[in-house]
C-alpha cells in the first residue's frame, strides 16, 4: 500500500529540526530552502512545536488549482505527485494549501512538496513523525 507521512505525536517534538535537514539532504543541501517539512514553535517554544508537512489530503486542493496538471492527486488515494516539467511556477498550489505545507524553491521557482519518502522519519529519534499507510479510496 502507498505511504504517507503522518505526525504521530507532536508533543514529543523537541524542535531539533533533524527532519528538515534530512529532507534537504536528499538533494545534497544543508539548509531549509529545499525542505518539504518545517518545524516551528507554536508561538514561543514553551508552547511546543508545529510540524508543517503535506498531510496527503484525499482530494488535494493544491492539485485542484494547478492549471497545468503538474500537481496530480496520487492514484493511490491521498497526496500529490509533482511533475516539474509541467510546472509553470504560478504558485497557486501554495495559496490553496491552508496548512502551508507547499513550500517554495525560489532558486528554481517551483513548489517543494513532500514525496512521502520517509527520509525525515529515519532521523526523528523521538518518534514524532512516521510513515503510515494511505487509507483513502483507490
Amino acid at each position: 500500500m502507498a505511504k504517507k507521512l503522518a505526525v504521530l505525536d507532536v508533543n514529543k517534538c523537541i524542535g531539533c529540526m533533524e527532519c528538515m535537514f534530512a529532507c534537504s539532504r536528499r538533494v545534497g543541501r544543508v539548509g531549509f530552502d529545499k525542505s518539504a517539512i518545517k518545524v516551528r514553535s507554536a508561538g514561543g517554544i514553551e508552547r511546543g512545536f508545529v510540524i508543517v508537512v503535506c498531510r496527503a489530503c484525499e482530494n488535494p486542493p493544491c492539485a485542484k488549482v494547478c492549471p497545468t496538471e503538474a500537481l496530480r492527486a496520487r492514484k493511490e488515494g491521498g497526496g500529490v505527485i509533482l511533475n516539474e516539467n509541467k510546472c509553470i511556477g504560478c504558485g497557486f498550489c501554495v495559496q490553496a494549501c491552508i496548512l502551508g505545507a507547499i513550500f517554495w524553491d525560489s532558486e528554481r521557482d517551483k513548489p517543494v512538496v513532500c514525496k512521502y519518502c520517509g527520509d525525515c522519519v529515519d532521523y526523528c529519534v523521538h518518534d514524532v513523525i512516521g510513515l503510515v499507510d494511505v487509507k483513502g479510496e483507490v
Binding site: I14, C16, M17, I45, E46, V125, H126
Partner: peptide
Amino acid sequence: SRRISCAHCPVGCVHL
C-alpha cells in the same frame, strides 16, 4: 513541562 533542543541536535537537553 517540555524538553527542547538546540537546532540540529537530537539530544534535547534543555529542560523547561
